[in-house]
Amino acid sequence: MDDKVKYYLEIADNALILSYRLSENSSKGPFLEEDLACTNIALDLIGQAESLYNEAAKLNGKGQSGDDLAYRRSERDYFNTILVEQPNKDFAYIMVRQFFVDVFNYYFHTELSKSRDKYLAAVATKALKEATYHIRRSAEWMLRFGNGTEESNRRAQDAIDELWKYTGELFNASEADLNLRESGVSIDLKEVQSHWNLKVNEVLYLAHLKKPNNEFQLPGGKNGIHSEYMGLILTEMQYLPSKYPDAIW
């Protein structure tokens, strides 16, 4: 696969699968305003994914559409991180997962908006505006959880402890990513990581929440090796295009 297409898909798949998880939470929020906020972020993310799939399909030059890329690949050919596949165990899991990704997206898109690939830079500039709002919301929830009640602190800490091992993958550069460095298309994830660490440390400190001591990390998604959840997500998401391959919706 072309490096650029692979790089586009990594970013798009991360947005699509997180959007999927957020959209599952529709009508299940703790109150109506937060219910709508989750849907709103799901919409932002799917918009980002769509722009990238459409362009990747063109770059690919195989006559596919953006929808074909989103809906008609096998599990092994999706390159999102394992973090975004993790299920909506409770509102603390949803928001901790979101916080980790929002902080990443904020600094990632800040860098990517300087990419020499003009299309990527434009998508990142738009995504950065959205990420600025997303990070504010999820960081506020960390402060509420941590400083709210004993139960909210415990639930948030449980989510942090369980999800921590999937955060490292955000900063693992794939081969395609590394190959695109010299031409200035892809961006340095180490830079993003140092910003991410500072921000996460700051917010967790203010929230009286702890970074886990165990540094074990479980990557795989960027190479197409996912968690068991991924197959189920795709089974559901691809249901109609798989069952009725000739239909146009």
């Binding site: 959209s23 953006g66 989103a70 559901e236 109609l240």
Partner: peptide, 26 residues
């Protein structure tokens, strides 16, 4: 049907619509 919406466009429209309904509730 959000998770099974058959295209990106259909999914976006459905998400936006459901969000509108919730907003009307508010």
């Amino acid at each position: 049907w959000i998770t099974r919406a058959p295209s990106l466009r259909a999914k976006k429209i459905l998400l936006a619509k459901i969000q509108d309904e919730g907003g009307h509730g508010l």
